[in-house]
Design a protein around this nucleic acid. Structure first.
Lengths: 241, 241
DNA sequence: ACATCGGTTTGATATATGTCAAAATCCATG
DNA sequence: CATGGATTTTGACATATATCAAACCGATGT
């Protein structure tokens, strides 16, 4: 569903951070790199449950996740809430705010996390100087649009178990892209949050997990996931209906 | 759900078209305007059912809809399809392709339509020169992200009738922003297409229409819509559940 | 070690929407 | 103006998921 998320997104993020080797923009010269250094602010630390920003906050910066993970959620007047995404290391968060100059969703840390701040005005100014950076920024924004379309497909036409399979496969790919195990990982979010993201009740999520486990496709122990048969998990998506 | 779509998006679109008075970028000087002229290609005409682009096509241009309307749809291998949006005059289409340099959905004309082509390379180059244009492009992309989030909320947490109400209200706002009647309009898409967009079967869409009509909120005659009570239509969204 | 509390799992039942089918209506074409 | 095919509406019934409720589990703190 979601295109594989590469470390690309780190390229503009962490010139001033420790992970420098991961973050060197391949398509920028050394001189250009030095300009990027100017951009990067200090790293900030967030504890589980902390808000990175809230709906209504003025846009100051985009944020590159340096460690940990976040969720973004959208609150409707009537109390309805929708989790719109789970973001992990190397991903950029806050793009929605450019439209109105104000954030229109909340970003909440799912665990203790570090974030690089990228002041948006500076980022825009610099991307006028550096075509590679400009293109990169455009790709990130467009990628977010594509990601959303995948979720629309999921929410609009998949059944509960397919949604969960798509969700797990997406996580698996993203972990793999980071050099982590694609088949064994910890979930950082609750059944409730997964349900909100997938448009399901938490009980339905729990049942779908149990069912995939009964079928021998995965092993679940609360938040520890082990994918036993990646192919059959993929088949859940394509075969059904 | 969807933020009101202003004519803003025309600003970068139609410097070379007939609607010049609608399209003058407010924040660009006359000199800058002349640079924009260079950008605008000829207008192209599409008949109902024609493809503006197809999934897999290489990104050449973004497209500004000058008249008529389109749908964008996402096709899954297994034949599932999801309509991801309906675009009308003044809106920009094709942003999803920037991410991979290839379109990942189809754009199909819902009626006879005219489109201004905006070669993306030129647009990018020019937006390095014109900060106002750059900002504008960013806002359009971010706006598309916000729009998607609204649809996720709709698909993830609303019931059939609420979804339809949200859909009609969105159309109403967009017509109003174009100086057209917010309460009487023609639908350009089938029940099938509305259903795909809203994550419902076409029969469910039809029933929801009938029900809103029985309640005296709207008048439907196939594709002619009249909103009788805008407030109650809005109440459908907030009150329920 | 025990009690407490949030999160998770599982069961029983209700309900919204999907599915299948037929009738009604619309629209294009000759 | 009549005909035929596509679209829409409506009905009857099936089913996936929501809802409500209870039990279970794991972490945390006393």
């Amino acid at each position: 569903m979601q295109r594989s998320v590469s470390f690309n997104q780190l390229k503009i993020a962490c010139s001033n951070c420790n992970l420098r080797e991961l973050c060197l923009p391949v398509d920028l010269s050394v001189g250009e790199m030095q300009q990027l250094e100017i951009l990067s602010h200090a790293k900030h630390v967030y504890a589980r449950g902390d808000y990175l920003y809230r709906s209504g906050d003025k846009l100051q910066s985009l944020y590159a996740i340096h460690s940990g993970s976040f969720k973004t959620q959208f609150l409707h007047e009537d109390g309805r809430e929708q989790v719109t995404g789970f973001q992990m290391i190397g991903e950029i968060i806050g793009l929605d705010a450019i439209s109105t100059d104000h954030h229109n969703c909340d970003a909440v840390a799912l665990e203790n996390s570090e974030v690089c701040e990228l002041p948006f005005n500076k980022l825009e100014a610099l991307s006028r100087e550096l075509p590679g950076l400009q293109r990169h920024l455009h790709k990130i924004m467009s990628g977010e649009i594509v990601r959303s379309q995948g979720i629309m497909l999921l929410l609009g036409s998949m059944r509960a178990e397919e949604r969960l399979a798509a969700f797990l496969l997406n996580l698996s790919q993203r972990f793999a892209a980071r050099g982590l195990s694609p088949t064994r990982f910890q979930l950082r979010m609750s059944r409730q949050e997964i349900g909100s993201y997938l448009g399901l009740q938490l009980e339905t999520v729990s049942r779908a997990f149990s069912h995939l486990q009964d079928d021998g496709v995965i092993n679940v122990k609360v938040r520890s996931i082990e994918i036993l048969d990646l192919q059959r998990l993929k088949d859940c998506l394509n075969s059904s209906r």
